[in-house]
Computed example of a mutant assay.
Amino acid sequence: MELEVRHLRALCAIADTGSLHRAARQLGVAQPSLSTQLRRIEQALGGELFTRTQAGCRPTPLGRLVLSRARPLVTEMRSLVTEARAAAADAPQLRIGSTASRALSGWLRRLRQRQQEPTLRMDVSANALLRMVADGRLDVAFVHEVEGCPLRIPDGLRLRVLVDREPQFVSLPADHPATAKPVVHLSELAGDRWMVDETVDGEFDAVLRMLHTAGLSPRVLHGDYHTAASLVATGEVVTVCQATCLPRPEMAVRRLHGDPLGVRLLLAARTETELDAAHPALAEAYEEVARQAPAYREWLEQGDVNTPVPALPH
């Protein structure tokens, strides 16, 4: 059996949903068919990729290895299909750059519904994306500016603030003692290892500053946030995460007491016309994912934030 993109997409869906049933529903296939497909994939790779329990499916060490290679391939294939369809239809393209965000999927979908065919360039560096907009290689960029670490805004760029301050939360193992409460004090994480992605502009300095201000000097591991999520799930580390991050069966998301770390969400372009073309769809997509994230939804309902996201229903 040769692995195909659809097989990799199925593995990602199982990992993301934590359940064969939910993954099958997301993929639009029957659960028995997905279970059979998973067994064939595991036979082809020579080992189990997920541990099945009553609580759901958790990646095994082999599964985490495969997923770390599968996710970029699935993302690249989606981008390839999008760009190929746009070229075939000779549709006007909106060249988008973005740092990581759960709002991306809804943003792209809404742009297509508005007869705009987007292409996507992902980068962990907001400064790199801003430079690409200034150089004309991208039309717009959606970026995160870490609090206390201002971005380098090239001359001539126009900015529109999506959210003036989004708090950063913490993701930690589901069985961590601190998950007993909805709000975690940093002191409760004093004995944990932290993982930080130092390639994200300003992130490493901001997290260390937050920890040192709280009087903590924990062990810090360096790695990307896909790896961090895998290590959180196995109890190895805790890490900061975006407020829109969704919990999983093996990973909890909690607010940090006092909201010690935040980011500003910005949309950048060379002209107001380009901002007008991209901003409404992005604002709608962000509102959608904000409503879906339990911890962020609760935080927003308290009215503690000055943000364009409208009041959420009780």
Rank of each mutant, 00 (worst) to 15 (best):
residue 1 M to T: 03
residue 2 E to H: 12
residue 3 L to P: 05
residue 9 R to N: 01
residue 13 A to L: 04
residue 13 A to S: 10
residue 14 I to G: 07
residue 15 A to T: 01
residue 15 A to R: 10
residue 16 D to K: 12
residue 18 G to K: 05
residue 21 H to M: 09
residue 25 R to Q: 14
residue 25 R to P: 01
residue 25 R to K: 13
residue 33 S to T: 13
residue 33 S to A: 09
residue 35 S to R: 05
residue 36 T to A: 07
residue 37 Q to D: 01
residue 37 Q to R: 15
residue 44 A to H: 15
residue 46 G to M: 02
residue 48 E to I: 02
residue 50 F to C: 04
residue 52 R to A: 05
residue 55 A to S: 13
residue 60 T to M: 02
residue 61 P to C: 06
residue 63 G to A: 10
residue 63 G to K: 09
residue 66 V to H: 00
residue 71 R to N: 02
residue 73 L to Q: 15
residue 76 E to F: 08
residue 78 R to H: 14
residue 79 S to Y: 09
residue 83 E to C: 12
residue 83 E to N: 14
residue 85 R to I: 08
residue 86 A to E: 04
residue 88 A to I: 03
residue 90 D to E: 15
residue 91 A to Y: 02
residue 93 Q to L: 11
residue 93 Q to I: 03
residue 96 I to G: 04
residue 97 G to L: 09
residue 102 R to W: 08
residue 105 S to K: 12
residue 106 G to E: 02
residue 107 W to L: 15
residue 108 L to E: 06
residue 108 L to N: 02
residue 109 R to V: 15
residue 114 R to F: 05
residue 116 Q to V: 15
residue 118 P to C: 03
residue 119 T to P: 12
residue 119 T to H: 14
residue 120 L to I: 05
residue 121 R to Q: 11
residue 126 A to H: 04
residue 128 A to L: 10
residue 130 L to R: 04
residue 131 R to F: 04
residue 132 M to L: 15
residue 134 A to M: 08
residue 138 L to P: 06
residue 139 D to S: 13
residue 141 A to M: 01
residue 142 F to V: 03
residue 146 V to L: 13
residue 149 C to Y: 03
residue 149 C to M: 12
residue 151 L to R: 07
residue 153 I to Q: 10
residue 155 D to W: 13
residue 163 V to N: 11
residue 169 F to W: 10
residue 170 V to H: 02
residue 170 V to R: 06
residue 171 S to L: 00
residue 173 P to W: 12
residue 173 P to N: 10
residue 175 D to R: 08
residue 179 T to P: 00
residue 181 K to V: 10
residue 183 V to D: 01
residue 183 V to T: 12
residue 183 V to S: 02
residue 187 S to T: 07
residue 187 S to M: 06
residue 189 L to R: 02
residue 190 A to C: 05
residue 196 V to W: 02
residue 196 V to R: 02
residue 197 D to V: 04
residue 198 E to K: 13
residue 199 T to E: 05
residue 199 T to G: 02
residue 202 G to W: 09
residue 208 L to V: 14
residue 219 R to S: 14
residue 222 H to M: 14
residue 222 H to N: 14
residue 224 D to F: 03
residue 226 H to D: 13
residue 226 H to Y: 10
residue 226 H to Q: 14
residue 228 A to H: 08
residue 230 S to P: 01
residue 232 V to C: 06
residue 234 T to D: 05
residue 235 G to L: 07
residue 240 V to F: 04
residue 242 Q to W: 07
residue 242 Q to M: 12
residue 244 T to D: 15
residue 247 P to L: 10
residue 247 P to C: 05
residue 248 R to A: 15
residue 255 R to T: 08
residue 255 R to H: 07
residue 255 R to N: 07
residue 258 G to Y: 01
residue 258 G to S: 06
residue 259 D to W: 06
residue 263 V to Y: 03
residue 265 L to Y: 00
residue 268 A to P: 02
residue 269 A to Y: 09
residue 270 R to M: 05
residue 271 T to D: 05
residue 272 E to T: 08
residue 272 E to Y: 00
residue 273 T to Y: 00
residue 274 E to I: 03
residue 274 E to C: 07
residue 275 L to D: 03
residue 278 A to L: 06
residue 279 H to E: 09
residue 282 L to Q: 08
residue 287 E to C: 11
residue 288 E to H: 11
residue 291 R to Y: 11
residue 292 Q to I: 00
residue 293 A to I: 06
residue 295 A to V: 11
residue 297 R to V: 12
residue 298 E to K: 08
residue 299 W to C: 11
residue 301 E to L: 14
residue 301 E to H: 13
residue 305 V to T: 10
residue 307 T to R: 00
residue 309 V to A: 11
residue 312 L to I: 11
residue 314 H to D: 15
